[in-house]
């Protein structure tokens, strides 16, 4: 299911994300329930999943709406949590040449998970990227709707214990990249840094700051040894 096909296609990208549905679906339901509790209508709850499509920031926004926060502070929180997507786009753009129209389309559906699966796929192309992106988009939106309709009946994802699937999936993407000394050092440094930062900063900022600092360390270490 997760081994890359000889020629990456929309459907192989779509299927590569399927193991993550298990983790995504309950969180979409939980988001819908949170949004409802915060006074958002079914339409508003769904519209956020369809347009913004970024899990952590949707949770944060639902909470902030519930507290009656100012629109500007909700938008600013969203920006801070999601600015890490800039790194994902930069990283993907180095591997896949995209026309303007393709960028406009691919940008709407970019996520942590779609980035992770795609960047690790050999011979990555637009079809595979869109397959991975839309796989997550589909499950996130279907389960947002289900959550709005029958959310009260579904147990808390915390109680189901399915959240573990995310670190496991990212581990599965990380481990094959750890070939050689510098990647190992970068991973260890980044893990420690993220741990420290997570005590004082929100999750999206931690990923952005660690992503930049860890990669800088890697670039410095590897180009230094090439020169030496």
């Amino acid at each position: 299911m997760t081994t890359a096909a000889s020629s990456p296609s929309f459907s192989s990208g779509f299927r590569a994300i399927v193991p993550l549905w298990l983790g995504v679906a309950p969180f979409a339901v939980a988001y819908a329930v949170t949004a409802k509790a915060s006074g958002l209508s079914l339409f508003e709850t769904q519209w956020m999943s369809l347009s913004v499509f970024a899990g952590a920031s949707q949770f944060a926004a639902a909470g902030l709406f519930g507290q009656g926060a100012a629109p500007i502070s909700i938008i600013a929180t969203t920006a801070v949590l999601n600015v890490r997507h800039l790194l994902y786009g930069l990283s993907l753009a180095q591997k896949v040449p995209l026309t303007v129209g393709q960028r406009l389309l691919a940008a709407q559906f970019l996520t942590d998970e779609a980035y992770g699966i795609s960047i690790s796929a050999p011979g990555l192309n637009l079809a595979y990227l869109l397959g991975a992106e839309l796989s997550l988009y589909t499950v996130w939106n279907v389960f947002t709707l289900l959550g709005s309709l029958i959310g009260a009946l579904v147990p808390d994802p915390e109680k189901l214990g399915v959240g573990i699937v995310f670190p496991l999936a990212f581990l599965g993407l990380l481990i094959p990249q750890l070939v050689g000394r510098v990647p190992l050092i970068v991973a260890a440094l980044s893990g420690l840094l993220a741990w420290g930062l997570s005590r004082v900063l929100p999750g999206g900022v931690v990923v952005l700051a660690t992503g930049i600092l860890g990669a800088l360390a890697g670039a410095w270490l590897s180009t230094r040894s090439e020169r030496a």
């Binding site: 890490r84 790194l87 994902y88 930069l90 990283s91 180095q94 942590d112 980035y115 992770g116 960047i119 690790s120 959240g163 995310f166 670190p167 990212f170 581990l171 993407l173 990380l174 990249q177 750890l178 990647p183 970068v186 991973a187 260890a188 980044s190 893990g191 420690l192 840094l193 993220a194 741990w195 930062l197 997570s198 999750g203 931690v206 990923v207 660690t210 992503g211 930049i212 600092l213 860890g214 990669a215 800088l216 360390a217 890697g218 670039a219 590897s222 180009t223």
Partner: peptide, 19 residues
């Protein structure tokens, strides 16, 4: 270019460890 090659590694570590 090396920086961008290391982005997945640092990002994945940052997504895993705090979680």
């Amino acid at each position: 270019l090396a920086f961008l090659r290391f982005v997945p590694i640092s990002v994945f570590a940052a997504l895993i460890v705090p979680d």
